[in-house]
Write a protein that binds this DNA or RNA. Structure first.
Lengths: 342, 342
DNA sequence: TCAAAATGCACAAACGATTGTGCAAAAAAT
DNA sequence: ATTTTTTGCACAATCGTTTGTGCATTTTGA
């Protein structure tokens, strides 16, 4: 027995009561509408016995609120984003919301499509790790009234709130460390030019060099993509030059995988032939041929702040502009940087 | 100008036409209902100009179909599942559906909650990488009429369709390979006992040994979890024994990370001191201290078949029982297995 | 004892889309 | 010049909730 009941009317009929009352009891508004305790109890019992769950779709339509968040990231297979996604999903659910996932494939066109798609699905808010340069489509979107929280980057010139890592500090520290180990010719393989993550890291790299009276050689800053392929190609270019760097700062975990691939093909080893520091610590970082010194970002923290900030925004209807945050990263020392003669 | 329009009525009013007609044009039923080409064109233009997107919630309510799929996996931060999730998201979207993500945290209670949650959200179907032993909650769920497709495992004794790797073959080949390299004492660090993935791999391990006239030593099969910690602990146990194995078969990528951690703490190196083959190839596998020989699963393939099979099921209303598949994995040879004296 | 206040619940509209059916006007057939 | 058929579209109901309002009935107060 105890068959399932398909909607609130059916349940109401079973108790011999109106749907209105059932709805009110189930939404905790019994007192507010003076439903007697006896009736309340009957409703609760029946709902339980016949395992009635309100249809969230109908509810969403009526309430104009779906209790759903959208998450758009450039690549869920990238462990950096996968970790963030995990915490975001957890926090989202803990707050009674569900999460729609969109992988923008590092493509701004896809990102835009996803934004529109999510708008059509009436998500209550969106967490976005943006890709590419333009932020017009995001701003335009913001105007439609759907809260958007940016993670991993910030969008200069916009009012879109963000949570990210203090990338400048991360790069600065990493480079100072390499310099302290005697390195003077340090290359920087960067990701997508022009976006804040990259700009800030490169600036940290530059400033660390200059602070130590090392002239910045623009030929040593190269690449334009956060992926493996870019790390691979740029390393090949670097290694074919007369003036080879003694150290490389890789601006993402994927780039450093490309670096490793290129180096191993040339039978060059880390750190004997080239030293390296990579952004993004990973579970495997410690077990690489040469355990990798990395700049660790506080991924869980970013995720948590993003979700809770977004939900607060949704509930109150206004942005807490205080939310903008740049979390200090942490340099994890391992064995991929060699001390060389000064 | 070109302000956005908020619903179909508003758009219809703007053209001076009924919502009915707008709906029909937008759903490609213009001909069916004899809407004149002129009117059709006007609708299409207006919809475009005012960037009207139908409210999927209202649509879902009326159609009793949300064009949403649910994905439940044990750990999105595990690169194996992250890769699968990426392809699933892509295929899902390519078919006009959206994806709700749930991370079951390797916990059967959470998995059950997610199933119910997704049911309440009226997903059209669910792709599930189940955790734990019991499958009663899944079967019960199936009866509620929501199609569920299982990946990564199968559920013996149920009719729930699945796509998985031929884990038996993968383990068998891996072990035969190690034997061919002269290994006779091979340990197997397993994941969760009793679930098909694990059972099949262990059986493959056993059969490969027996086929080669090596008696299976049950002490060499240990562990009970697919995570890093288990790999770490079991390796410590193995290494503290009198009779140490010369090779280890790690039944997951996470387990092998644990193995590496334990070995490196004891200053043991791969493959000089211990050889290892791990399930699940990863982007970093080639760049580990010792490039890892792995059993690669066809993750994209699994994802693609799962999504398309599920969608077919949703559309036709019946399961194609032919869909059950065990995809042959591929052994990738690197340098984590040493040839030893026979 | 009678008016006023409190109690307990139900009616019906609304959210935004889709669709079976019906009804004019125009075109074709006789 | 009628009748019949076709064309082109609109009305209104429906999906399952939630909620403003209203109406009996009971309780309280004087």
């Amino acid at each position: 027995m105890a068959r399932n009941v398909k909607n609130i009317k059916e349940l109401a009929a079973l108790i011999g009561i109106s749907a209105t009352t059932v709805s009110r009891v189930l939404n905790g508004k019994a007192e507010l509408y003076r439903i007697s305790p006896a009736t309340s109890k009957k409703v609760l019992n029946a709902a339980n016995e016949f395992s009635y769950y309100p249809d969230r779709i109908a509810r969403g339509l009526r309430l104009k609120r779906t209790e759903t968040l959208g998450l758009i990231i450039p690549d869920i297979a990238n462990p950096f984003f996968a970790s963030i996604a995990k915490t975001i999903e957890f926090e989202t659910r803990r707050n009674g919301y569900s999460l729609i996932l969109g992988d923008s494939l590092d493509d701004i066109q896809t990102e835009t499509e996803l934004l529109n798609l999510f708008a059509g699905r009436k998500v209550d808010g969106i967490i976005l790790a943006p890709v590419g340069h333009s932020s017009a489509h995001i701003e335009e979107f913001q105007k439609r009234g759907i809260p958007v929280m940016v993670i991993d980057r910030y969008l200069p010139g916009t009012k879109i709130p963000f949570i990210t890592t203090d990338n400048y500090a991360g790069a600065f520290e990493a480079v100072e460390y390499m310099i302290s180990k005697g390195h003077r010719v340090i290359a920087c393989i960067q990701g997508l030019k022009g976006i804040s993550v990259n700009t800030d890291r490169v600036q940290g790299y530059r400033d660390a060099l200059e602070k130590n009276n090392i002239t910045v050689d623009n030929h040593m800053i190269l690449g334009n993509d956060f992926g493996v392929e870019n790390g691979y190609i740029q390393t090949q270019i670097l290694m074919s030059r007369e003036k080879m760097p003694t150290a490389i700062l890789a601006l993402s975990n994927l780039i450093s995988i490309g670096v490793m691939r290129a180096l191993s093909e040339k039978n060059l080893s880390i750190p004997d032939d080239v030293s390296i520091v990579s952004f993004d610590d990973q579970p495997y970082s410690a077990f690489l041929a040469s355990p990798m010194t990395t700049v660790e970002q506080l991924k869980e923290e970013i995720a948590r702040i993003a979700v809770n900030g977004l939900l607060a925004w949704i509930r109150t209807g206004k942005i807490d502009q205080q939310i903008d945050k740049m979390l200090k990263p942490k340099l994890i020392f391992r064995k991929s940087v060699k001390t060389i003669n000064v």
